[in-house]
């Protein structure tokens, strides 16, 4: 477990900054809601009627004038994208960073098996994602209580669950990729997260592109869908789980044979 705690410690600053930033932005979103709601009136209909712009962000499915609808969309953009970027960055860094910084030479000459290295690093990834989401949930819970808005707890829980799953899937995939590369993982990680985000927006825009939802985890972790239907799309989630498993499997298999320089 030494490496596991070592990883957590080394990443603690970046984890704090990311969770703090996302939690802060979501709390601000929640706090400005009463102000917006009082001014909005019919504005909600307008947001829902902006054609493809509304479709792209799923605003046609929800009442933007209601707190849940408003939150689902804000949350989708903030926690969805921010969490995805964080997950991709730490997933990418976990294995490749050791080689980029030449610390692999130190780590792998210690009496630990590569399997154990991968397992402990992976465990640390999952814990970091959970911590980030716990901080965010806590911040949202406090700010919702402060403004005194009624929320559906089950839908909120489902929404956050969807984003945790999204982040875990992305972390698994980037973790798998990071076993194959030696450096430059950061760009690939951020690029992949953004690409998948925009793929989902694209698939929201046109019926023809709906199959794209199978490839992107944003397909099932779509705030508007989750709140409107009260459920996570299982078919998209299953495909995502397969991607995640492949990523982790690839990491273990590849890293055990990798020629580390």
């Amino acid at each position: 477990m030494t490496l596991f705690f070592h990883e957590l410690k080394r990443n603690s600053l970046s984890l704090m900054v990311w969770s703090g930033a996302i939690a802060f932005m979501l709390a601000v979103c929640v706090f400005i809601y009463p102000e917006m709601a009082s001014q909005m009136g019919e504005l909600g209909d307008m947001f829902a009627d902006m054609g493809s712009f509304s479709e792209a962000f799923g605003m046609d499915q929800l009442n933007f004038g209601e707190f849940m609808g408003y939150f689902a969309i804000e949350c989708g953009n903030t926690l969805g994208l921010g969490g995805a970027l964080f997950a991709a960055i730490i997933g990418m860094g976990a294995l490749a960073k050791e080689e980029r910084d030449h610390t692999a030479e130190l780590l792998l000459t210690l009496p630990v098996s590569r399997t154990k290295v991968v397992a402990e690093k992976f465990g640390a990834l999952l814990v970091q994602i959970l911590v980030l989401n716990l901080v965010v949930v806590a911040a949202v819970a406090v700010s919702v209580l402060v403004i005194g808005e009624e929320v559906s707890l089950s839908k909120m829980a489902l929404l956050f669950l969807a984003y945790v799953l999204l982040q875990i899937e992305l972390a698994c995939i980037t973790f798998g990729i990071s076993a194959f590369i030696k450096r430059g993982g950061l760009g690939i990680g951020i690029g992949l997260a953004l690409l998948l985000y925009f793929v989902n927006i694209l698939s929201n825009l046109t019926e023809d592109a709906e199959f794209l939802k199978y490839i992107t985890p944003f397909g099932y972790a779509d705030g508007s869908q989750v709140i409107a239907n009260g459920a996570i799309e299982i078919k998209y989630l299953l495909v995502g789980a397969v991607f995640a498993l492949l990523g982790v499997l690839a990491a273990f298999l590849k890293y055990n044979k990798k020629d580390i320089s």
Binding site: T2, L3, D101, H102, T103, L106, L107, L110, V112
Partner: peptide, 25 residues
Amino acid sequence: YLPSETAFYSGMKVKDLLSFAAKMR
């Protein structure tokens, strides 16, 4: 083992690194 070019984790104190290596062993 002592590599010719030693690279360590950035930001760590000497004693932290030594105890990390010892704990890993």
